[in-house]
Write a protein that binds this DNA or RNA. Structure first.
Length: 854
RNA sequence: GGGCACGUAGAUCAGCGGAAGAUCGCUGCUUUCGCAAAGCAGAGGUCGGGGGUUCAAAUCCCCCCGUGUCCA
């Protein structure tokens, strides 16, 4: 980056000079006499014990000081965005204040909520997890205070010069930092194909803020100016607070009284971890994350379980929810939504704690058994075992060690070893829906005017053909709904031809006909939509919104839609929830949702600017995931549910008819799927079930009310006859055994051993069973042959210590080309088809006699 | 989304190519005024499902399903 980028008029006006850091070699600007930039590691902390600001601030005071400062200078204060980035699908969490405005504002697609604006945005960075409590300055959740300006060619708010001036004024004004102690280090910021100069603000060894100026687009080797330049600043609230107090670590300054409180029970690192995690969890859970083993849920689980482990190994530790509540009360001073649903939050946390306890119990037993087994065979548990247990069973190494009699040392690089195991995993997240084979539409074709948004009831219309190719037709306007948003395609007719599928393709909606289109461009055609199908889809879609609302109302605000599908036969919604739904909860939801149907509330669909809609309804709008565009289509069930949605909807809830829940299942950890039907299908379904019941009752010959008992009786009968068959077989075999034992020609005595030989017509399992019956007493050898599918089977069982069954079989099997083997107690061989089985039997008898003779 | 581990009697698990086991629980009997307890006897298993390899599969291989867990 050219050095002129940093040569700001402000620096000259205020008397700054440019210098080079003796340690890191970077250029920086300062009023003072420094040979190095004023950030660690180039210099030590100089503010511990000697605060760099005049007055100590709490985080709350510091946030107010910051936001107030910028408000007084023409900035509008903007409310925080959720810590879960619902409006984007490229990241899980909000990691910086600028995330709030990506991609729609930064790309210029929509105007910012205010310009310039100031915000304090809670941000999450799990990359620093291990440093929390150790470094004295890292947090998983931190607040990034910022002022942002978005400059268009026709409207410049401010850029590098004013930004730096404001920053300097902030520090040296009321906060009272020594102007000569500050350095502005020249850096380059790059991200997402954009880049620009940035300044890193150092004071007494602490990097307090970064001022980023997004200015260029990388185009190969060249840099092209961005049409919209962005001021992206980040001021760490925690660091400002720390600087103002000059405590030993940032944790004392940030967590204040709660930290002192916990320090009575915990060492410094653990107290810091507990409070850091509690703060992050308060935001995460309030913003609707349910702990689970995948996606954002995993991070909530990680924080919860780490916290629980610390509490578990500490005597007289406070309750986790108590720590969460204390932390939440402090946060709520600035963010009142935190703790507003404390009961729901407690339920989520307690459910997770319970699961963790179960998991640990299981693990404990397993480790103890494994330890005993290993030691009894002279082995030892090694470090790799610890890694394996953590990776596959989730047993923290410190816990494993507690259970072991002779524990190995936990290696220092434990977590690095875990990471090594995950090195060769290939990320396949970037799965793209395979192209459905839609043709490209020439750019010159006018975009399709989408009419179903405005009126879902017009099912017959006239339009002009805008473009056509094979079976595909684009119209200048259409009421046909294309597959999307979990709602399946409309069907119907264009002219006399059937429309089999409708799909989005760029700015057009393509209708695929049953065969090649006969229409000419410009031709006027009549479109007719399959009314019954559309009605059913509308009912299912509106039903989905109603259920979503009822589920959130019944189960708690942690419920978010995690996926949905609306077909003609049924619909389903996946929601985030921490356990399976009880029968009672289901009944409640079904009653509630049908009540809303009967209340006949209006369902309004309209367009609204993104920022305005977010402001009015909050981020629960994005139930269906991130949606593109500057305007959102809002579907509002009055007083009940509001979502951004492009689907076709009933205009009153009563049109949904009825909603019948068909099935509920936990499809994965933290996600519950409900399947249901509405409208005509709900009635059909009830009829079908009725029919099935009646038919079952007819076939079983009992009244419907007695079906369960009837089935029980039937099952008992089946069980009975199965037992009977088994008993009969055993009896038959028993009779055969007795017959053989009674026949002096088949049983011969050699020394202590009785050898019984017999050729019977039985298969292998029966031969085995028979052998068992014959060799119940010690000192017996049974040599049996049978035939199965033309192949002779030899079975030898022995309870004589002198006669090894496998030896007998080995010697005999040569006689009939048999392959086999076994143990000294039982052995078997199967011969070639048609091989002389009798010879094998005789050979086995001789072998057994030889072995048995003293 | 990917890796790893695990699915065996009602429960907890062992077995890891040769005749399905242990402990607890259950049933019956003995002992006891009765209970607890003990002793004896017994019932209870498509070894998650489906393919394959093998003379032989709970055990080895492949594909599903389910559970747990680590990591993005």
């Amino acid at each position: 980056m050219d050095s002129s980028e940093y040569d700001l008029p402000f620096f000259h006006r205020a008397g700054f000079h440019r210098s080079t850091c003796r340690v890191c070699g970077s250029a920086f600007w300062t009023l003072g006499d420094h040979d190095r930039c004023q950030e660690a590691p180039c210099r030590d902390y100089g503010f511990v014990g000697h605060p760099g600001f005049t007055r100590p601030h709490t985080p709350h005071e510091m946030r107010e000081a910051f936001l107030g400062f910028f408000e007084q200078r023409g900035h509008t204060r903007v409310r925080r965005y959720p810590t879960v980035a619902r409006w984007r699908n490229d990241v899980f969490f909000t990691q910086a204040s600028i995330y709030d405005f990506q991609p729609w504002v930064t790309s210029g697609a929509i105007p910012p909520p205010a310009n310039p604006l100031t915000i304090s945005q809670p941000a999450l960075r799990f990359i620093d997890l291990e440093e929390v409590g150790r470094s004295g300055r890292h947090f998983t959740l931190f607040e990034m205070m910022a002022h942002h300006a978005f400059n268009r060619p026709d409207h410049e708010v401010y850029f590098k010069d004013r930004t730096t001036e404001l920053c300097h004024e902030l520090l040296t004004g009321d906060l009272g930092a020594d102007p000569t102690a500050i350095t502005y280090k020249e850096e380059v910021w790059e991200g997402g194909g954009n880049l620009g100069p940035s300044l890193s603000v150092g004071l007494l060894g602490l990097e307090l803020a970064t001022l980023v100026f997004m200015e260029y687009v990388r185009d190969g080797a060249a840099l092209k100016p961005m049409p919209l330049t962005v001021v992206d600043t980040g001021y760490g609230l925690e660091r400002f607070t720390w600087m103002s107090q000059g405590t030993k670590t940032a944790y004392e300054a940030v967590f204040g009284r709660e930290y002192d409180e916990l320090r009575r029970t915990f060492p410094p690192r653990e107290a810091a971890i507990l409070l850091d995690h509690a703060r992050a969890l308060n935001f995460l859970l309030t913003d609707g994350v349910v702990p689970s083993n995948s996606k954002e849920g995993y991070f909530a689980r990680l924080l919860l379980r780490r916290s629980i482990r610390i509490l578990q190994r500490t005597p007289d530790a406070p309750e986790l929810v108590a720590i969460l509540d204390a932390s939440g009360r402090e946060i709520a001073r600035a963010f009142p939504e935190i703790g507003a649903n404390r009961d729901d939050l407690h339920r989520v946390v307690l459910a997770e704690a319970e699961r963790f306890a179960e998991s640990i119990d299981r693990a404990r037993g397993m480790i103890r058994r494994y330890d005993e087994r290993t030691r009894s065979t002279g082995g030892r548990i090694n470090e790799e075992d610890l890694v394996q247990w953590y990776d596959s069973l989730g047993i923290p190494p410190d816990l494993a060690v507690e259970e072991l009699k002779e524990p190995p040392k936990i290696p220092d690089d434990f977590y690095a070893r875990v990471a090594t195991r995950h090195e060769n995993e290939r990320p396949t997240n970037d799965y793209v829906e395979p192209a459905v084979g839609l043709p490209d539409v020439p750019e010159s074709t006018p975009a399709t005017e989408v009419l179903y948004y405005l009126d879902p009831y017009t099912l017959s219309f006239e339009a002009h053909v805008a473009w056509t190719n094979g079976p595909f037709v684009a119209l200048d306007r259409t009421y046909f709904y294309p597959t999307g948003g979990g709602q399946v395609t409309d069907k119907g007719h264009l002219g006399d031809l059937e429309v089999v599928e409708v799909a989005h393709q760029g700015r057009w909606i393509l209708h695929r006909l049953e065969r090649a289109s006969p229409f000419a461009v410009g031709e006027r055609v009549r479109g007719r939509i399959d009314a019954a199908r559309r009605m059913q889809l509308m009912q299912h879609h509106t039903a989905t919104h109603l259920l979503n609302g009822a589920l959130r109302e019944t189960l708690g605000p942690h419920v978010w839609q995690a996926g949905a599908y609306k077909g003609t036969e049924s619909a389903r919604i996946d929601i985030t929830h921490y356990k399976a739904l009880s029968r009672d909860e289901l009944r409640k939801v079904e009653r509630r949702v049908n009540q809303v149907v009967r209340e006949d509330r209006p369902v309004k669909s309209y367009f609204e600017g993104r920022s305005e809609a977010e402001r009015r309804f909050g981020f629960t709008l994005y139930q269906g995931g991130a949606v593109p565009g500057k305007e959102l289509r809002i579907v509002e069930v009055e007083g009940f549910d509001v979502e951004a949605c492009g689907g076709t909807h009933c205009t009153h809830t009563s049109e949904v008819g009825a909603i019948a829940l068909m099935d509920v299942e936990r499809i994965q950890d933290g996600i519950v799927r409900l399947t249901y039907a509405s409208g005509e299908r709900a009635l059909d379904l009830r009829d079908e079930h009725e029919e099935i019941l009646k038919e079952a009752s007819r076939r079983l010959g009992v009244p419907v009310a007695q079906l369960p008992d009837g089935i029980d009786r039937l099952l008992a009968e089946i069980e009975e006859s199965r037992k009977l068959a088994r008993a009969r077989r055993r009896e038959d075999l028993g009779a055969t055994a007795e017959r053989l034992l009674a026949d002096p020609s088949v049983a011969e005595r050699v020394g202590e051993t009785t050898i019984i030989t017999g050729a019977v017509d039985l298969g292998r399992p029966d031969l085995m069973e028979l052998s068992r019956l014959l060799t119940k007493e010690p000192g017996r050898v049974a040599i049996l042959t049978g035939e199965e599918e033309g192949r002779g089977t030899l079975f030898v069982g022995s309870t004589s210590p002198r006669v090894a069954a496998n030896e007998v079989v080995r010697e005999a099997s040569a006689e009939f080309g048999g392959k086999g083997g076994g143990s000294p107690a039982a052995a078997t061989a199967v011969g070639e088809p048609g091989a002389p089985l009798a010879r094998a039997l005789e050979a086995a008898r001789l072998a057994a006699r030889r072995a048995a003779s003293p």
